[in-house]
Simulated assay, not measured.
Amino acid sequence: MNITTRSTGRITWVAIRAMLLLTVALGVGYTVVMTGIGQLALPAQSNGSLVKNEEGKVVGSALLGQSFSDAKGKPLPQYFQPRPSAAGSGYDGAASSGSNLGPENPDLVKAIRERKAAVAAFDGVSEAQVPADAVTASGSGLDPHISPAYAAIQVRRVAEARGLTTAQVEVLVAQNTIGRDLGYLGEPVVNVLQLNLALDRLGR
């Protein structure tokens, strides 16, 4: 009985020491090492890919979408608009999600129909010209990008609102278009926040 008790106590103490050692090594040491490597190798990405304006103020992240609307939620014509978001009240990082509605869900079909009409009217194009990403949310609800096709139908509206030529705005769109990864993976996209900041830097 005493031998069994001593054996159990010894095993328990070994287990406790192993747990403490692994907690320190993996829970603290590994975290510190990986954080250090991240800060040295990729400091901008490690800190959230934060985007700053000309005054050095953080205005968002290159990885997270955000709305460009007035206090009443109406889209601002002088800015390129992002795709819809189903994350919380919109682009809420703490509530990242899609709508989880199937393609034949009547609520989704109705929402897409209404969004398409609204986008077409806002940008002065036909509904047939409105691309899919203009009326559907991404799986995360936080996508910071739009397709070049969606950017293209917004060029004229933004140019008119800012007193610019369409050629000037098209140049900015091209400069803020990200090509396919490795040249062949995915599709080209436009980062909305960085494009709108480029517009603001023109001072109009």
Rank of each mutant, 00 (worst) to 15 (best):
A128W: 00
A149R: 12
R162C: 03
A159S: 13
P148N: 12
N196T: 11
V192Q: 01
P144V: 08
L197H: 09
I178N: 07
T136K: 13
P131C: 02
V158M: 01
A132E: 14
A151K: 03
A132S: 14
T136A: 09
V155E: 04
D143R: 10
V169Y: 06
D181V: 14
Y150H: 13
P148L: 00
V130C: 05
V130R: 02
S138A: 13
A174D: 14
E160R: 15
G141I: 10
A132W: 00
V125N: 11
D133Y: 03
P144F: 04
S140K: 06
V125T: 14
S147E: 02
G179V: 07
A151N: 12
E127M: 03
G179F: 07
V135S: 07
S126P: 00
V189L: 02
Q129H: 02
R180T: 15
V130A: 08
P148D: 10
Y150R: 03
G186P: 08
N176P: 11
G183D: 13
V192E: 04
A128K: 15
N196V: 10
N191R: 10
L182I: 05
D181E: 14
T136C: 00
Q154M: 03
P148Y: 01
A167D: 15
R157N: 06
D143Q: 09
R156T: 15
G139K: 10
E170N: 15
A149D: 15
A167F: 01
V158E: 01
A174P: 01
A151E: 07
A151M: 12
V155P: 05
V130F: 02
T166D: 12
V158C: 03
V189Q: 09
A151L: 08
A149G: 07
L195G: 06
P131Q: 10
A159D: 12
S140T: 15
A151W: 04
L195T: 13
P144I: 10
L185R: 05
G139Y: 13
V173G: 12
D133E: 08
D133H: 06
T165F: 02
V155L: 05
A167H: 01
V125R: 09
Y150M: 13
P144G: 13
P188T: 09
G163Y: 12
R180S: 10
I178G: 02
V189H: 08
Y150N: 12
D143S: 15
L197D: 04
L172N: 11
I178D: 13
T177Y: 01
A167Y: 02
L182R: 11
P131K: 01
